[in-house]
Structure formats: structure tokens, C-alpha cells
Design a binder for these strands. Sequence first.
DNA 1: ATATATGCAAAGCTTTTGCTGAAGA
DNA 2: TCTTCAGCAAAAGCTTTGCATATAT
Lengths: 153, 153
Amino acid sequence: MGRALERHEVERRLRELGDRCRQAGMNLTPQRLAIYRALVMATDHPSPEALYGRVKPRMPSLSLATLYKTLEALVELGLLRELPATGQRRRYDAKLDRHHHLVCTHCGSVADLEAPALDRVKPPEDLGGFTPQHVSIHVLGLCRDCGPAGRSH
Amino acid sequence: MGRALERHEVERRLRELGDRCRQAGMNLTPQRLAIYRALVMATDHPSPEALYGRVKPRMPSLSLATLYKTLEALVELGLLRELPATGQRRRYDAKLDRHHHLVCTHCGSVADLEAPALDRVKPPEDLGGFTPQHVSIHVLGLCRDCGPAGRSH
DNA sequence: ATATATGCAAAGCTTTTGCTGAAGA
DNA sequence: TCTTCAGCAAAAGCTTTGCATATAT
């Protein structure tokens, strides 16, 4: 389900980070590169803490403050999206093309769902002044690890 | 968009709260009644803080701790759902029948979207071990107050 | 009467902010 | 060289927990 990204694609995205930083008058720092790379390669929509655990080993000086600031900057640059999620942690998704999500109501995991049939879903024309930008379909339920048998709490 | 609930319906739901509490061996307290009533009547998917501001005036002794415990209990009873949302606040929805949401990426507001066409959306059969329970469609974009002109940030 | 719940205060997490030294362009 | 940034530490939200008292049944 979490298909690995090809090397070219990762590199293309990292170049895009460089371009957008330049356009925005922002520096391309090793921290931003490392954080964005980890996001691009992730298939699990990591929380800030999870991401920190992934990047920190390769860059021990990295601080959580920088991680948060970087996430905000990447969202601002349009390279990253914050996912609507339940629970107390934020979740991020660097996969910007249209896709959907399987959200476990028990453990909070979020997996990608590729479903061409769902891609055809369009919002109604009249949304009463709301300007639609993106449609995200969440299938809520129990992931393989949590249910239906493992329903504990 | 936020159609007012009829009195009967509200009363039916409050009776259902009583029933479920009894079944679960839980007491039906004034706090639970007041909190659930506020949730049933709300059309805006309130955060805990917003809900507190609504119930507290009618019940000044209410504590935030009780509010949080009650929200958890109502979710557990199946009378309330936590919405996937962006940002740092939780959002709750006591409207359990199928409907969808307009989520503002700028201010975080969440409005109901009634769209029969969207109700027909079904997840694929094979979800790789995931047990679907509920489909929620989020239309992300800018609400009337935030955009498209009002894009500031 | 007895189990369950409330409210308080304190603690726990996650996220944000101010500031200074460091580094990118 | 000049602006932007990383890291630190402290603060600020939001949510949870422990416990004593109060309440539902």
C-alpha cells in the first residue's frame, strides 16, 4: 500500500523545495532538506514527534522547535498539507496529488487509500460562499491491528 | 445549512442518552445531560473550549475536567464522534447520520455539508484488512469569511 | 448504602515564542 | 555583509489524572 517512491521523484521534490525556498526568499538549510526528505519518503503521515524520531538520528543537533517551524514553513510554501486527524497530535502529508485515507478510530493510524473511483467525487457547485480547494475522503474504521476482533476499549 | 433540530428530536436524543447510560451502568447526571444537549443542538462542531463556554453559563459549577471526561464517555457510548480536524483543538459531532464537512484551512471552521450525491460514495471492497465503519468527506478550502480574497496569513 | 461522578488542583503533552549565536546567499 | 535561521529554554495551550467530596440510583 505504501509504494516506495523512486529516487528520481524524491530528487525532483527536493529540487522543488530549493526552488520554492529561493522564490520565497528563504534559505535552503540542511534541516529543511532533511525534514522534507523524511516527509517525502514517509508513507504513514507522521506526527511531529514521529518525524523528529526519524530525522534526529541523522542530525542530532535538530531541535523540536526547528521541526515545528519547518513544518509550518513547508505548509506555507504549499509543499506539505496538514491532515485532518483525530486525537491530540498533528499529522502531515507531503503527497499532494489526490488520494484518500483509512483512519483507525482506535489507534489513530492513517494509511493512504488509492481508489480511482473516489477520485471522481466532486463537491456540489453551490457551497454557499465556500471556496473548495481539495477533497479528502476519510474512511473511518478499525485497522488490521485493532479490529474487528481486537476491539478493546 | 445548520438546520435547527425539532424539539421532539432533541428530546428523543436525550432519552437515548438516559437509556445508554443505564445500559452501561453510568449515572445520568445533570452535567452529562447539559453537555449532550448542547452538542445535539450545536451546528458548528464545537471544540471543548467552545462547548464549555456554551454550557458553563447555565451551570456555573461545571469544570473543564468534567467536560473532557463527559466527551470521552459520550464517544464511548457511541453518541458522539470526534471529527478528524486540523489544528490543535478537538472537534465533536453529535450528528451521527451520514453527512459531510466544509473545512476552512485558514480559520479551522467546520460546517456541515448536506450532499446526497456524496452519500452514495462507498469505499472499495478490499481495504487490506481494514474494517470500514463510516465514510467522511472533507472539502477543504476557504470559508466565506476567509477567502478567496481574505487570504492573509 | 454503594458505586459512580464532580470539581479542584496539579501534572502531562504538544506546540509556540523570544532570543542569541550561527550560517546561508 | 546582511538577512534569515537553528537551537535553547521558557512559556503557553490543551488535555488528563488523582483525590476528596458530593450525588445518582
